[in-house]
Design a protein around this nucleic acid. Structure first.
Length: 791
RNA sequence: GCCGGGGUGGCGGAACUGGUCAGACGCGCCCGACUUAAAAUCGGGUGGCCCUCGGGCCGUGCGGGUUCGAGUCCCGCCCCCGGCACCA
């Protein structure tokens, strides 16, 4: 008698077994001992525990990783599959402010909840590797790493204009300002001149454009490349007539140099303060304060003449120097040679102020009015003019980038303290390694007030200078959350290490990450920062690789009401209710069956009934097979063939194509066929195959059905391998076309030669009717598939 | 403007290197069986138009092309999504 399918009873039972056995713990290799060389690091972006519940996007993400993990494990890979918590930072702190309470307590409670949800979904996580970025055992090493960056001049402190979010009351990195707004809260950011800590990401700008050891999606690479914004060009010196000093400009169009008829500096350019007329200074003061977006929106150019002139190094002509806000101080050199004939903005400027326009490139792209360079195609002219400038000592080829260094100090409480001490005598001094971690103190009032809340904690702030022993003060800013997530994937590998952030031997074994699953929204932030971290660590000899993530996959957004589920939007749907109702197996299957995992999908539980029906059908049919089918079932026949074909499809989709919805369809097809022949000699084999193949998706019910078929421990069972002999067909359905249209189809022997196939095709009544007794002009034979007559 | 991705039934989607009348699998809908009835379950149908019920014609955003054969390749458009953008 078939028992009832009771998902909750089954799921709890197997989850307990796996937990008690530590079924998904995979130990690290030990130097000198034999270690499997077939290994796989399966990583999904770690969650922010800023709310009490995971959302369906997490369910999608971690189920995908889970399937990958199960299939790899059962195929003989050594799989590292860790999990942790991105616990520091704004999202958690803002949640604490909303709810009232200490962020540490709220985060701890959320983590506990989310961990329970993860366990309830039955994910094959190695909990022994768990880390949390707010744990001193973790952030001790975040601080230690920061000191290495500083030591290598890849972290520095400077005063610079930075993005300030007036709502969150902190500096925000360029990478997390979207359309001029704070990515977290949507508030428009302001520019403020502040002394901040930066990581020198620009030191790796060129290398970050290349992906030598990584298979990344094209669109992801493009986004990063656009963000880095590399432009090849030249730096050219213009001499100021009145003072004799040289002012450099950056241009990507040195071929148009002869057409430069005026010169423009940015309002913030030091030249203005040093030499410009009072009127120009006055203009610069006002213009420089306005946001770039606002300036760009206006059609009419503004500006003021400085009263000075420069010499065009190509023509020797005297050019007026203007100041205008369409020239930006933070790109290139903050000064340009205005070429109104060949640049739209320069033209607008020239037209507004009645400046001369000289055409130097004709309609065929060749130079004119350019002295010895006349007649050269513009691409050639670029090289020729730069070479000539170099000879003259007036310029050289150079490259400019859009990328800016990453500002990572935050004027907020809930983050990793920056281990720096300021001493009047010694300046900025690193906290000695033995004194790490600098613990984040418990403070009552952590509300953001525009300056670091830690600064108000006198007891914590006052410290002896590690160098001279004199009275000194701590750095009160904390680090951006993205510093924690720039290296968490390394700590996972060696999460209990008390001597170092990680051991190079084990990290070199597991990394680079074989498959990273995460949102595309972190492309120019987290993903870029992580690459920067790893490249630097490789240069210091800490790791033996230069790219952290060999393959990246971006899941689509699970949307609700058309927009991405997120706590800030408040449109979060968690897994609890639907798991309560249908069980974890159904939810796991359903979230993947909804569509291709890399596309956005609107969350609706409507279709889950179809999956529940499938599970019940599978349950019933497998039990029927267990009763009706011969015990020593054969592995040949129509069902066995279908089973073997399904093995190939599922395996190829998961491992090679990274496609998770089609394997479910494939197993459904197999189960549909099996349902009509539960007592067939090969039914038992087909049932075992179906259960085995569905195990990564629905591990609990699969385990139970595996038991019903008389076996145990499916999670350790070798992944099915297709029997090649069974895949070879003895007959196939020959398609016969006339002029490319299918006119007949029938089974033929697979061993027939081409001429025999043609002969069989010509015997068909239907085909004859379409040939009208005539001879085909041409006959195309595709062995094993079709014959096409062309008349 | 530059760069990247995409457009297939009522819906989610399949078709992996051009080759089985494109539409697998599922949702929804329709019909039937079981039932006093409903739910659940099981069976069947489901791109459009025409039909003498054998079939015929059209059909993968639009227009061309290559090919015996195109959702798939090429050219030109249209639309949608994403990145960059007064970046010199």
């Amino acid at each position: 008698m078939t028992p009832r399918y009771e998902p909750h009873e089954i799921e709890q039972r197997w989850q307990r077994v796996w937990e008690d056995e530590g079924a998904f713990h995979v130990p690290n290799p030990v130097p000198g001992a034999a270690t499997p060389d077939k290994h796989w690091y399966q990583l999904e972006m770690l969650p922010y525990p800023s709310g009490p519940s995971l959302h369906m996007g997490h369910v999608l993400n971690y189920t995908m990783g889970d399937i990958q993990t199960h299939v790899r494990r059962r195929s003989g890979w050594h799989v590292a599959r860790p999990m942790g918590w991105d616990a520091f930072g704004l999202p958690a702190e803002n949640a604490a402010i909303r709810e009232g309470g200490h962020p540490g307590e709220i985060v701890a409670r959320n983590i506990e909840n989310c961990r329970a949800q993860m366990k309830r979904l039955g994910w094959a996580i190695d909990w022994d590797r768990e880390v949390s970025s707010d744990d001193p055992r973790f952030y001790r090493w975040t601080q230690w790493l920061f000191l290495r960056f500083w030591e290598h001049d890849l972290a520095y402190r400077k005063e610079a204009p930075v993005n300030w979010c007036p709502k969150d009351q902190t500096v925000v990195a360029n990478e997390y300002v979207v359309d001029g707004r704070c990515e977290r809260c949507g508030t428009p950011v302001e520019l403020r001149q502040l002394t901040q800590w930066f990581f020198r990401t620009t030191a790796y700008a060129d290398e970050l454009l290349e992906y030598p050891d990584a298979e990344w999606p094209e669109r992801t690479k493009t986004i990063q490349q656009n963000w880095i914004g590399r432009s090849e060009g030249a730096e050219i010196l213009f001499r100021v007539e009145e003072t004799g000093e040289d002012v450099p400009v950056f241009t990507t169009r040195p071929d148009t140099l002869f057409g430069a008829t005026f010169f423009v500096v940015a309002p913030e350019h030091p030249f203005v303060e040093a030499h410009a007329s009072e009127e120009a200074k006055e203009y610069a003061r006002h213009a420089g304060a306005r946001p770039v977006e606002e300036r760009a929106a206006e059609k009419e150019k503004t500006g003021a003449f400085t009263g000075l002139h420069v010499t065009n190094p190509a023509t020797g002509q005297r050019l007026p120097v203007w100041v205008s806000d369409f020239v930006l101080m933070d790109y290139g050199t903050g000064a340009i040679g205005g070429v109104p004939a060949h640049d739209e903005r320069d033209r607008e400027f020239a037209e507004t102020f009645a400046l001369p326009i000289v055409t130097v490139i004709d309609d065929d792209g060749r130079l004119i009015n350019s002295g010895q360079f006349d007649g050269l195609p513009s691409e050639e002219a670029k090289r020729a003019i730069v070479a000539w400038l170099e000879e003259e000592g007036r310029g050289h080829a150079t490259v400019s980038y859009r990328l800016r260094d990453w500002s990572f100090s935050r004027q907020r409480y809930w983050g990793c303290p920056i281990p720096v001490i300021y001493c009047d005598e010694c300046g900025a001094v690193p906290v000695p390694a033995d004194d790490l971690p600098v613990l984040l103190p418990e403070i009552e009032d952590y509300q953001p007030k525009g300056k670091a809340p830690l600064a108000g904690n006198e007891e914590w702030m006052r410290v002896d200078c590690p160098k001279c022993g004199g009275e000194a003060r701590r750095e009160a800013d904390t680090m951006d959350t993205f510093v924690d997530s720039s290296w968490y994937f390394l700590r996972y590998i060696d999460s209990h290490n008390d001597e170092a952030p990680f051991d190079r031997f084990v990290v070199d074994y597991w990394l680079p990450v074989d498959q990273y699953i995460g949102g595309i929204d972190h492309t120019t932030g987290h993903l870029l920062y992580s690459r920067f971290f790893v490249k630097a660590m490789n240069d210091w000899g800490m790791v033996g690789f230069r790219e952290p993530f060999a393959r990246v996959f971006h899941q689509g957004w699970v949307t609700l009401g058309g927009s991405k589920m997120s706590k800030t939007r408040g449109n979060v749907e968690g897994p609890d209710e639907i798991v309560d109702r249908y069980g974890a197996d159904a939810v796991r299957l359903y979230i993947l069956f909804m569509g291709p995992a890399d596309q956005d999908m609107e969350w609706t539980p409507d279709g889950v009934e179809g999956i529940v029906r499938f599970l019940r059908r599978l349950w019933r049919i497998v039990h029927e097979v267990a009763e009706a089918a011969p015990a020593d079932g054969v592995r040949e026949g129509a069902l066995a063939r279908k089973a073997n074909e399904t093995i190939v499809r599922v395996t190829d989709d998961v491992l090679r194509r990274f496609q998770f919805h089609t394997p479910i369809s494939a197993v459904m097809e197999l189960v549909n066929e099996l349902g009509g022949a539960v007592d067939a000699p090969d039914a038992r084999f087909a049932a075992e195959t179906a259960v085995s193949l569905i195990q990564p998706y629905a591990p609990h019910v699969a385990e139970e059905l595996w038991g019903a078929l008389g076996h145990e421990r499916l999670w350790e069972e070798a992944w099915p391998v297709a029997d090649e002999a069974q895949l070879v067909r003895e007959t196939f359905e020959l398609v016969v076309q006339v002029n490319g249209k299918v006119r007949d189809r029938f089974e033929v022997d697979a061993g027939l030669r081409e001429d025999e196939l043609v002969a069989r095709a010509r015997e068909s009544e239907k085909v004859r009717a379409h040939l009208n007794g005539g001879e085909p002009r041409k006959t195309i034979v595709v062995p094993g598939k079709l014959v096409n007559f062309v008349v």
